[in-house]
Design a protein around this nucleic acid. Structure first.
Lengths: 333, 333
DNA sequence: GGTGGAAGCTGGAACGTTCCAGACTGTGCG
DNA sequence: CGCACAGTCTGGAACGTTCCAGCTTCCACC
């Protein structure tokens, strides 16, 4: 099925064109230093032999891989959006993206190890769950950019959304609609959860609604959202802010099954503006993380670190944006 | 921020452990030929130096990449399940998985090109959408295994589910429950859609229910399912088989919003047994594709091709399995 | 006519592995 | 006692590039 013959190398081309390997190397890299006529002869020879440079050898010798390693959760919708944008952001930079997935059977450590082996020049980690200490250890070996999670340590760069600010926007929006009894379904130990919780509390306090504050344990998944919604049904508030869109979907589902009207009986605000929220039949009001900007900044930062460019702030915080859709409205009662 | 020091190499580890490079190489590859005590010392030294083998050098020298390229759709839930299992299936084989994602801004051609440059030894494509001709062209360069889509051409290997059989099981199940008016929401031009449609038709005919056959245009996404469900609501059947779980979720959502009881008013059967279907609050009766077996077979086949092992059948068809959950029951009226 | 320097080219040393041939032990057996 | 042999371990040659120092020419300029 495949031709068994050896691939052509620089040496083969050199022999055929009657010049040295070095010269062929120059020509192949479009570097100056070869005469027009020779250049033509070399290219001709290369073409006849079907020569393609071997990137492994090239990278080995030049000591660079021009690879940005990206660790993402394959089951995480928003990570899918980020990966999509990371590819786009890297396209123009001369660097390439190498993916490594975290799956139920493959933890972050393993995913990271794979990328290190490929000699990535920097690592971009999407919402990593591992302890700060191990991130810091990683960062002694190569630049590490953490996306969508805060890390309090000078060794790693962070690009994240102003999560507290996001919950302020959500609460403001709900208050403006006339809501007072606003609950929050939180994300437990998930990246960003603590700050969103804090934002929620602060925002309620800001409106003098402290006594209505109510935090229900949730999580990252539809399942978690469904469970939390069932808890809420006993004594429902008029609105709820939810840790993320996926979790909010679970909430919506349980509400629909119990015949509750959204937004009539209960208004729901998600978080992420993931693909999910945008679906016409979900049509979820949500806090949009600006994935385009975040990924662009992350790639930029990774390259700055690789190339030793000075960097102003270690942490970049991107403002979120409220996207009003169909799951929020004035309370009825 | 980063230690300016060079990355550790075999030689560094060797020096530290007081042995030769060759021996360290052996130990790192878990090859026999090193004493227990020495092995321990080497591993310790490697760990202290944070040594990771350089895959470029390794590959350059050995002339092999031992890399299986996997092209998957980042927005496709079931692909996530497959990737998870592919990592697991590859783990024991000595080959590694290199991922390349298809995103809205990055088509299959581009995803494939990336993997070719990395010198993958075989390609595993998850439900590729590209025409057979271009798959065949690819296959002249390296072994190509297509997963979860049928391809009628001797040049590529195929591992897929017996999709028609799956719809037979779904219809049998529904008929047994007492349903007659069973509709099908199809997947249009998506991989597998045609065969599932055919299976649906055959199965109805087998039960003498031809005249109830009704195919509603659907698609791959929740959106498509929601649209199809709205069409069905005018003149609802008592049961519906849906192209995939994601699409079925859209159907369920619309039904819930319109106050229809599932399975009372309408029974729903999905396809894939993706993560989605298993969620407690969705609890979707579905046709499980055996991702574990399929991925194991795909990896096995890829390696057989790479190593030139003779292969019996070019196409392997894996039987699906009905998973009865909460969205199917007897019709009421 | 000599000097300087650019343009064009060459040879060989890296890069970090793997692979191979062989050296050095100790042990079992005739 | 000597020999074979298994078990360990070493040294050095690849792999296909890039990079560097240096070698010719040739021409312009004083």
């Amino acid at each position: 099925m495949r031709s068994a013959e050896r691939r052509a190398t620089l040496a083969d081309v050199a022999a055929r064109a009657g010049v040295s390997k070095s010269l062929v190397s120059l020509v192949m890299r479009h570097e100056p230093g070869a005469g027009t006529e020779t250049r033509r002869r070399v290219l001709e020879a290369a073409d006849e032999l079907g020569y393609h440079p071997d990137s492994r050898a090239r990278l080995l010798r030049s000591g660079r891989s021009r690879l940005l390693g990206v660790v993402f959760g394959i089951q995480h919708d928003f990570h899918g959006d980020l990966v999509t944008d990371l590819y786009a952001a890297a396209r123009e930079t001369g660097y390439e993206v190498a993916l490594s997935a975290v799956t139920p059977g493959r933890d972050e450590r393993e995913a990271t190890a794979g990328l290190l082996q490929d000699r990535c020049e920097a690592l971009i980690l999407l919402g990593p769950q591992q302890p700060t200490a191990s991130l810091v250890r990683l960062a002694t070996r190569l630049p590490v950019i953490v996306l969508a999670r805060g890390v309090r340590h000078a060794a790693v760069d962070v690009v994240r959304t102003a999560d507290a600010e996001g919950l302020h926007q959500a609460v403001d929006h709900l208050v403006q609609l006339g809501h007072r009894r606003i609950a929050h379904i939180d994300g437990g130990r998930a990246p960003g959860a603590a700050e969103r919780r804090r934002g929620y509390r602060d925002a309620l306090r800001g409106h003098g609604l402290d006594r209505y504050a109510r935090i229900v344990p949730g999580g990252l998944t539809e399942e978690d959202g469904a469970a939390a919604a069932r808890v809420l049904l006993d004594d429902p508030p008029t609105a709820v802010t939810v840790f993320n869109d996926r979790c909010a979907t679970g909430v919506l589902d349980v509400l629909a099954r119990h015949g509750r009207q959204v937004p009539g009986d209960l208004s729901v605000v998600g978080y992420d503006d993931s693909r999910l929220a945008r679906l016409a039949h979900v049509d979820l009001t949500t806090i949009a993380q600006d994935a385009g900007t975040m990924t662009r900044l992350a790639v930029r930062r990774a390259i700055d670190r690789i190339e030793g460019t000075a960097v102003a702030r270690r942490e970049v915080v991107v403002p979120p944006r409220l996207v009003v859709r169909g799951t929020t409205g004035p309370p009825i009662h």
